[in-house]
């Protein structure tokens, strides 16, 4: 089956004359791990911001599960099951790891406007939150402040928080950026483990991660799609070699 979960049609975003994303038509297959690569300034993160509605496209359409989401607000997109992570690790630093995950569970399961109730009603989410933390190897960190965790563990916490929403599709913005070798391996293993039943679109700079993990790769340069295909196809593409690999290995 070649079902498409997320599709963009000639998605374009201009910033006062500068075209950051120029007529990008993406099509992400349900259940795949799809990578978005390209040199700095190629428009990868802008694409993410457009897909999750943190930015509004100037032109073009975005379809998620066949539904037009072009005009929706970011929180609505998240509620539909399209959840993103951020390039800079996005945790709530002055809350504990457990509270971080609980915040996602609390949203998914309601009761978030109750200002007259004790926060102890949230204890019923503790078990599920701990299970999610254990899943990403943070079973020791439940009571620690998220801001105090080492970088790799912050990223793991971020993934645990995202998974708490049980999203159909995850958008991961450079999940291994700035990590040491061991942490990279751990995150890659984690992504493999969470993959069943989900679709993942990720921006990634580390090509060895992309090679081992991703089914389809889209290469962006200067806001346009340069090439698309599996790793072998894309890495053999002459323009990709000059535009991306060429500069990366210069």
């Amino acid at each position: 089956m070649n079902d498409t979960i997320l599709e963009t049609q000639a998605m374009t975003r201009e910033f006062s004359g500068f075209v950051a994303v120029d007529g990008v038509s993406l099509s992400v297959r349900t259940g795949s791990i799809h990578a978005l690569i390209g040199p700095n300034g190629a428009g990868k993160t802008t694409c993410f911001n457009l897909l999750t509605k943190f930015l509004q496209p100037t032109r073009g359409r975005i379809l998620f599960k066949g539904r037009d989401i072009t005009g929706l607000a970011p929180a609505q997109v998240a509620r539909l099951g399209l959840v993103r992570s951020f390039q800079i690790s996005a945790v709530f630093p002055k809350l504990t790891a457990l509270e971080n995950v609980r915040l996602a569970l609390q949203r998914a399961r309601g009761a978030s406007f109750d200002f007259w109730r004790s926060e102890r009603v949230l204890d019923r989410y503790n078990e599920r939150a701990m299970a999610l933390l254990t899943d990403v190897g943070l079973d020791h960190a439940g009571d620690l402040l998220a801001g105090m965790l080492p970088y790799g563990q912050k990223r793991a916490l971020e993934i645990a928080t995202t998974l708490a929403l049980d999203p159909e599709m995850l958008l991961l913005d450079e999940p291994t950026a700035g990590m040491g070798h061991e942490d990279v391996e751990r995150i890659v293993a984690l992504i493999r483990r969470i993959r069943p039943g989900r679709t993942i679109l990720m921006v990634e700079h580390n090509l060895s991660v992309v090679e081992g993990l991703c089914d389809i790769i889209t290469v962006l340069t200067r806001g346009r799609v340069l090439a698309e295909g599996d790793y072998a196809t894309v890495s053999a593409h002459p323009e990709v070699i000059s535009a991306y690999l060429g500069t990366a290995h210069a």
Binding site: P74, A75, V83, F92, P93, R107, A111, E119, T161, L165
Partner: peptide
């Protein structure tokens, strides 16, 4: 309260709170 917990998350990192829905 559960509400206060969300407030603190907004104070800490509003885009992330938005991305959680």
């Amino acid at each position: 309260s559960p509400f206060g917990q969300v407030l603190k998350s907004i104070r800490e990192n509003e885009p992330r709170a938005t991305s959680l829905g």
